[in-house]
């Protein structure tokens, strides 16, 4: 799959400035190196800090994800696509999706959608884990990429995902349909975006072009 890069921007919270970054339509070896050399040590540091300050609830629930294993397992599989957010040569977010999976929401049942297998932002971007978080907007940009891919694949913007419990507020706020706990064996809530919500998300209620 040819990698393409699209310009995006993120909010750098400590300085409150807008910085240029890119959304890449793949996860390359450079991203996995960042994951190994930067994300993992930062995550370790954060976990240790949370354990020593009694704030176990601040440990991101994705604390045991291993991106190198995920990427190796799906290497060469057409149904799996990867995306990454890179800012100043450092990887800030990663996403793995499946095309297609099928909608469960009543009005869309059986129609194809892009299923977000995994979406994660770098540990230093999470508010309350390692300070207040560096870059904001990584998750939104990755989710937009999933919806745009859904449009490109003729899935009309439909996407589905299982939210980790501490991210439920984020997906609820985007007006995704909360289909509850019964679609997951792990007690995670399953959310879907129908074409109407996808359009509202991309255009923010008609204010932006797709």
């Amino acid at each position: 799959m040819t990698t393409e890069s699209f310009p995006i921007c993120l909010l750098h919270k400590p300085t409150d400035t807008i910085v240029d970054a890119v959304l890449q339509t793949s996860i390359e070896e450079a991203q996995l190196e960042d994951w190994r050399n930067l994300w993992v040590p930062a995550r370790e540091e954060g976990i240790k800090r949370c354990v020593s300050t009694k704030q176990i609830e601040c440990i991101p629930q994705s604390y045991r994800w291993k991106w190198d294993k995920k990427i190796a397992y799906y290497d060469g599989i057409l149904a799996k696509r990867t995306f990454s957010v890179v800012c100043n040569d450092r990887t800030e977010g990663l996403m793995l999706v499946t095309t297609p999976a099928f909608a469960l929401e009543e009005s869309q049942k059986g129609k194809p959608l892009v299923y977000v297998d995994f979406l994660e932002t770098a540990p230093w971007n999470i508010n309350g884990f390692l300070g207040q978080g560096e870059y904001r907007g990584v998750g939104s940009v990755l989710l937009r990429a999933a919806v745009l891919l859904s449009l490109q694949e003729e899935y009309q913007g439909r996407i589905g995902l299982q939210s980790l419990p501490d991210a439920e507020a984020f997906y609820s706020r985007l007006q995704m349909r909360d289909l509850g706990l019964e679609h997951s064996k792990e007690g995670l809530r399953y959310f879907e975006m129908t074409p109407i919500e996808a359009n509202a998300f991309l255009t923010r209620g008609g204010r932006y072009e797709i």
Partner: peptide, 23 residues
Amino acid sequence: AKKELSKTAVLRMALRFYQLIDV
């Protein structure tokens, strides 16, 4: 018609499934 996809998109979808199963 059922999936609201072009014929090309249906075949592309089928190929992805088939490859995944085969691998």
